[in-house]
């Protein structure tokens, strides 16, 4: 992971949003991801039921 890499001004990566360490942690936090697992499944089921 290169999250702590120094940005190079005026290059393409300079303008893109980067996740904070907190965001990165939450993406793999098992408890939070269990919640997201349920939410995502519900969202997808809603999408399926639309057809």
């Amino acid at each position: 992971m290169n999250n702590d890499k120094q940005m190079r001004p005026f290059e393409q990566e300079f303008y893109a949003p980067k996740p904070t360490p907190f965001s990165l942690h939450m993406r793999v936090n098992p408890i939070w991801q269990l919640v997201r697992f349920l939410v995502l499944n519900i969202k997808m089921l809603i999408m399926v039921r639309k057809h």
């Binding site: 992971m1 290169n2 393409q12 990566e13 893109a16 949003p17 980067k18 996740p19 990165l24």
Partner: peptide, 8 residues
């Protein structure tokens, strides 16, 4: 772009 930048 965010995910590409995050992964360099």
């Amino acid at each position: 772009e965010s995910i590409f930048t995050e992964r360099n």
